[in-house]
Design a binder for these strands. Structure first.
Lengths: 138, 138
DNA sequence: TTGGTTGCAAACAATTTGCATAAAT
DNA sequence: ATTTATGCAAATTGTTTGCAACCAA
């Protein structure tokens, strides 16, 4: 279920080299490196010998976000990280020592969130749950 | 249970006008405006006739954070907001239309978080849960 | 052809830092 | 008298924008 050029077209975006390459980079990353900053993506492009400007990386990532292809996170101040949106909604656990990110999903928490918002007369538009964790030493 | 000059001293910080004033501003804000950006604090200072530089506001807020007197949040990219730490751990609901912030606490969610981290061999060091919400139209 | 797209440089916004001066202990 | 803080301006960092050249449709 990888994104295709057709997905770009459907989003009203022309199929250009920068876009295709960036999408590829996001798809090719394994689970432990799904979350990349604009700078990360930019570096990957350079490593792959592609001559794409950093400004373009930002523009494309923002367009992808608008199109719903990627999700932007602000785990920490100062910079955003992006991830492909194909895995559906989920939350994150960030290992404070290794920087690793683990994804998880919990319906109990989801339901509680909904209920709490409702108690206050609200409906949830979006949410962000990040657990900052440390490996438990045996 | 307001913070005092003694708390500043205990944190190894000299009791200076900027620090006292900033602490005061954070304490005097009512529940609906507990969360302030550095710029907000800076404006409050100017409104109060105090001539404190913005750089100092940033420095002091960062020192307060280190000392555990305030907590920094990154609700959205681009800027941080700070709040007094005296109310203990809790989560946030941000009204996407008015910008209002509502605090809440839910032990069911807390327990699930703990359990989930544990399932992965982790212990929670910190966490951030923000619900972006919208008033439910009747 | 032609309107969307890119690269580059300049513009920006939030935050940090260097340094000489000023204030706290 | 010492040590720590402050204000200001300059420097950084992450991100956005203006614009002329460029490329996909």
């Amino acid at each position: 279920m990888a994104y295709s050029n057709q997905d770009l077209r459907s989003a009203g975006l022309k199929v250009t080299l920068p876009r295709v390459k960036i999408l590829q980079i996001l798809e090719d990353s394994d689970e432990s490196s799904r979350h990349k900053s604009a700078e990360d993506v930019y570096q990957s492009l350079r490593d792959a010998g592609e001559d794409v400007g950093l400004a373009t990386v930002y523009r494309v990532l923002t367009q992808f976000e608008t199109a719903g292809l990627v999700t932007r996170h602000n785990f920490e101040a100062g910079h955003s990280v992006f991830e492909l949106a194909e895995t559906g909604p989920h939350d994150h656990m960030v290992d404070t020592e290794s920087g690793n990110v683990v994804e998880f999903k919990d319906s109990v928490i989801e339901e509680r969130q909904r209920a709490i918002a409702e108690e206050h007369g609200y409906e949830i538009v979006d949410h962000s749950l990040v657990l900052y964790v440390r490996k438990k030493d045996a």
